[in-house]
Design a protein around this nucleic acid. Structure first.
Lengths: 208, 208
DNA sequence: TCATTTATGTGTCAAGCGATACAGAATATA
DNA sequence: TATATTCTGTATCGCTTGACACATAAATGA
């Protein structure tokens, strides 16, 4: 029993990529079905048949973003030789991803649904969960460094992880405002400049 | 020749404050006239008579925000005894402002209109200008430190100013995601931990 | 007292929103 | 070839959006 009925006349994966870019550039609320119809070059009944709803389409777009763009940040982080290099790589690859020519600037997951207006509380919370996962993964990387003896046990690693995630998220806004790749890399360098001081925190929580 | 005609039956300043809080919480696009009518407790013809349009109302709301909430950050920065204290104060006051109980979290100017959907390009650009001004003011404070001999002439002060603004903007997103005031203050501490290293940058741009 | 001026509440406008009903077209199975 | 199945384009649904027309209410000035 193979495929029944009239075959789909458009490339579902390609259409999803287009949708992802529109959501990425304009956010969930800022993207209308008209925008999607134009970008995907697919009429709305076919979009609904293939993806279910605007909400479901956004969910798939976010999943695709995490696999592709977001995945490059993560994999770069996990293959780094040291904890410090992992953080540095995360920030530097983020700077590059957020300023790719021909692509929307900044991060879809950070900028996609920040406000809780009337109907989009669900999507906002889902992106919030994804953002929280980024923190968790960075924190796990730090704790691995501690477990392996690379890093001391004293510092507030959660605070440090939060700091670097905050810098990364701020870079999304900077990218949206037109910051160059070079400028974002300089921001990453500045953040890394804090590392040595942060790692050598004393018991009382103050820098040496 | 005093006031002619029927007097206004609502407090314009109070209604503007209410509007500001709605825009602050939901953004420009995310806020509908229905939301404003409900929050301000004023019917739409009266809103249009008093403020002109949704766009003009948002403009006034942003101006009010800058005078009040934003003003507290700036004045704290200008009265600081040293450049380092100015930056530290800016970040710490930001952490406090972004987590005031009973108020929307994060910064109206940072979060108010990030996307360029169909009709709001004008407001996005205006907020962008305001954000650029924040960078300019911080940079001027740094250059003052250099001029007064407090700081050396070598470091890329624009990059350093951009770094601290990036942290501040990232804090808006963190605040939106529910970060506690304590957590944001810890982020500020981490950012400040970078200061000494940044100030002592060598000619070649690498840390000592 | 009465014209003038300004603000108010009711009701509504055209346009756009997300989502579908429907009939026809294109495939697989029987 | 006949039938069942699935996708396509047209056209439109009910609803919300930002904005405003209109008649009325409440003030001042002559």
């Amino acid at each position: 029993m193979t495929q029944r009925g009239r075959p789909r006349s458009f490339d579902r994966a390609a259409a999803l990529r287009r949708a992802m870019e529109v959501f990425w550039a304009q956010g969930y609320d800022g993207t209308s079905m008209s925008n999607l119809i134009a970008a995907m070059n697919v009429n709305s009944p076919s979009i609904y048949a293939a993806f279910g709803s605007k909400e479901a389409l956004f969910r798939e777009a976010v999943a695709l973003y995490r696999e592709t763009e977001g995945g490059r940040i993560l994999s770069a982080m996990t293959t780094a030789p040291s904890t410090r290099a992992a953080i540095e790589t995360m920030l530097r690859v983020s700077a590059e991803e957020y300023t790719r020519p021909g692509k929307p600037r900044g991060c879809l997951i950070v900028l996609g649904a920040l406000h809780a207006d009337d109907g989009n509380e669900v999507m906002r919370r889902e992106l919030q969960v994804h953002r929280a996962e980024s923190l968790t993964m960075l924190l796990q990387r730090l704790k691995r460094g501690v477990a392996e003896g690379e890093l001391p046990n004293g510092p507030d690693w959660r605070a440090i992880a939060t700091f670097y995630i905050t810098v990364q998220q701020g870079m999304s806004i900077q990218a949206r405002d037109g910051a160059t790749r070079k400028a974002l890399l300089a921001v990453a360098d500045c953040a890394i400049a804090a590392w040595d001081g942060l790692v050598s925190y004393r018991r009382d929580g103050r820098a040496l």
